[in-house]
């Protein structure tokens, strides 16, 4: 009913092109997270959907209909701003009600809606208060309620949790996921935090410098990153990536895929190194191993080694990733995959 599509969309701010010829389809009813480093154009993309900063060229479709000439208030979208953008002069009730009044919803119906929503987000007792007397978390809920009450088919959220403290953020994440399930609307959620993206998304759209790097569900994004950027953006600590030799190809493995041992195993990747640092995080320990071919981060569930100790870092074949000269993923089926594996094995056991 309300899928979103970008068709060859470009956006420039005074000649400075931020997004160029972008094609993207956001599925109806899905929770889609736009993630990427700061300044990569996520907000710009979101604002084009809302119609606040229309595209320079190309077209944006909502529910199959070109909305390029439709005003923001008539697109059936609601947005939660990063700074909440609550109307400071209005009470909580007036804030939530404002859109309904503008849409000429009758008073009785309006009151019912506002009361229902405010109970759902826990603001019922605060309806007559001014926003300046509310806490950060409560203001966030006002912004949410204001968006929800209009029953939009598309929900846009621009880093809505970034101003909350860590504990509240985790709680709100869960609430947002539940909210999405309940409403069944299309959610487009912007964040620069890959953990947030991984935990909430049905589909992640990863961007860098205005270009979409990969579009996939979280598990695929994690297991089969389509290029070096994706591999190193998703996951903490990021994937270890090293050069494979003259060909310019790269190999990579996730910190938790490596095994530390005192004796050399027969894995295709196996190097000797010294533990430079050790971070004990409770359920897991992160070691930084310094070796002749570079530094590697290794995550272990057991805390068996100490700093300064000499160890072997081994990675089984199934856990290795290869990237070509152009930093794109080399798939298992491609012929160069085998070559890369041989090259790595030769280097480790040569």
């Amino acid at each position: 009913m309300a899928s979103i599509a970008f068709k060859r969309v470009s956006k420039a701010f005074d000649k400075h092109e931020v997004i160029k010829d972008l094609d993207l389809t956001i599925e109806d009813g899905k929770f889609t997270v736009l993630v990427g480093p700061s300044g990569c154009g996520k907000t710009t993309l979101l604002r084009m959907i809302a119609g606040l900063d229309p595209q320079t060229s190309g077209s944006v479709l909502i529910g199959g209909k070109d909305v390029s000439r439709i005003a923001p208030g008539k697109r059936g979208v609601a947005m939660v701003f990063q700074n909440y953008a609550i109307y400071p002069t209005m009470s909580v009730r007036e804030n939530i009600e404002f859109g309904l009044v503008n849409n000429k919803v009758r008073k009785a119906e309006r009151e019912e809606l506002v009361e229902g929503i405010s109970k759902a987000v826990g603001l019922y007792e605060y309806l007559e208060r001014k926003p300046s007397t509310l806490s950060g978390g409560q203001r966030q809920r006002v912004a949410l309620a204001r968006a929800m009450v209009k029953k939009p088919s598309v929900f846009l959220m621009d880093e809505p949790l970034s101003n909350l403290d860590a504990k509240l953020r985790v709680q709100m994440r869960i609430e947002l996921i539940e909210l999405h399930k309940k409403l069944g609307a299309t959610f487009v959620y912007v964040t620069h935090d890959q953990v947030e993206a991984m935990s909430m998304a049905d589909t992640i759209v990863l961007m860098n410098k205005g270009v979409i790097q990969q579009e996939a569900p979280p598990d695929e994004m994690y297991r089969r990153p389509s290029n070096r950027f994706t591999a190193q953006f998703i996951g903490t600590p990021p994937m270890n990536v090293g050069e494979l030799g003259e060909s310019g190809s790269l190999f990579g493995f996730r910190p938790e895929s490596a095994v530390l041992s005192e004796a050399q195993g027969d894995e295709p990747f196996s190097v000797r190194g010294v533990i430079a640092t050790r971070e004990m995080l409770g359920s897991e320990t992160i070691y930084q191993v310094r070796s002749g071919s570079g530094n590697y981060m290794v995550k272990c569930s057991e805390d068996l080694f100490a700093a300064g100790q000499e160890v072997y870092v081994g990675v089984p074949a199934a856990k290795l990733h290869f990237f070509g000269e152009d930093e794109r993923r080399i798939d298992e089926k491609e012929s160069s995959y085998g070559k890369c594996m041989e090259a790595l094995r030769g280097r480790s056991h040569g």
Binding site: A50, A71, N83, Y87, T89, G99, N102
Partner: peptide, 23 residues
């Protein structure tokens, strides 16, 4: 006045006149 308040009003389908009076 923060421009995002006006943007929120635009998304709330407020007319120019109403935005002026109410915001």
């Amino acid at each position: 006045i923060s421009p995002s308040i006006y943007e929120a009003a635009a998304l709330d389908n407020a007319s120019k006149l109403r935005t002026f009076w109410k915001i």
